[in-house]
């Protein structure tokens, strides 16, 4: 494992910790999209089915389990916690997730490495992760004002994807015959989804003011 990949994973983990801390400390999930969090749970469940039949490393297994547990913990807070669930912007978080799930599934059936249940589900998870942040970005656009922690959460998620891109470039030049087109193309799309957000995040940071999205 190279330094870019490790930095990417740690940024991903940190983004989840930031979100969980925000929810626990402020007892509020205002500005957080439950739809996006549920899509991430679907992504992790369909991708990490290999926990049952393949072992890569202890690091790999532990991280997968952490991502699964934290995803369901966040969903639990937003749906079931008696204080937190009342702060959820249900009326604003109206993205139709089937418009993401169905096309990703069809694409996974059409473009994959092998027509098996686990391989199609794994491919589906790759496609779905690329667009899973969209309900969150739409919610942000609607509520306009972005609180610091939610902003940092999304910024870290975007950074994690950017670090994965660098990791793939590094692996391409250091590992003979290494290529994974499905992952590369989806990952590039996924990183591009964040570009607009990055622009406003960096602008707010440079002007030392609270982040605001244009109408």
């Amino acid at each position: 494992m190279n330094i870019f990949r490790l930095a990417g994973d740690m940024t991903h983990l940190l983004s989840i910790i930031v979100l969980l801390l925000k929810i626990q400390a402020t007892k509020s999930c205002a500005g957080v999209s439950l739809k996006t969090q549920e899509l991430y749970a679907v992504v992790f469940v369909t991708r990490y089915l290999d926990l049952f039949y393949s072992f890569i490393s202890l690091y790999n297994t532990v991280m997968k389990i952490i991502f699964l547990l934290t995803a369901f913990t966040i969903i639990w807070y937003m749906r079931k916690h008696k204080v937190v669930c009342q702060t959820y912007d249900k009326e604003q978080d109206t993205f139709r997730v089937l418009f993401l799930i169905v096309p990703c599934f069809v694409l996974a059936l059409l473009v994959n490495h092998e027509m098996s249940v686990t391989e199609v589900l794994w491919t589906f998870s790759i496609y779905l992760e690329a667009v899973a942040i969209l309900p969150q970005l739409v919610l942000l656009q609607r509520t306009k004002n972005v609180d610091n922690l939610t902003g940092n959460y999304i910024f870290m998620l975007g950074s994690y994807r950017a670090l994965y891109l660098v990791n793939w470039v590094y692996r391409y030049f250091t590992e003979l015959g290494y290529r994974q087109w499905i992952v590369w193309v989806s990952g590039t799309v996924q990183t591009c989804v964040y570009l607009d957000f990055f622009y406003y995040y960096v602008q707010a940071w440079r002007n030392n003011e609270r982040m605001k999205l244009p109408g």
Partner: peptide, 10 residues
């Protein structure tokens, strides 16, 4: 091109 990279990423 055939991808045969191991699924070792998260």
């Amino acid at each position: 091109a055939q991808d045969d990279a191991p699924k070792d990423e998260l």
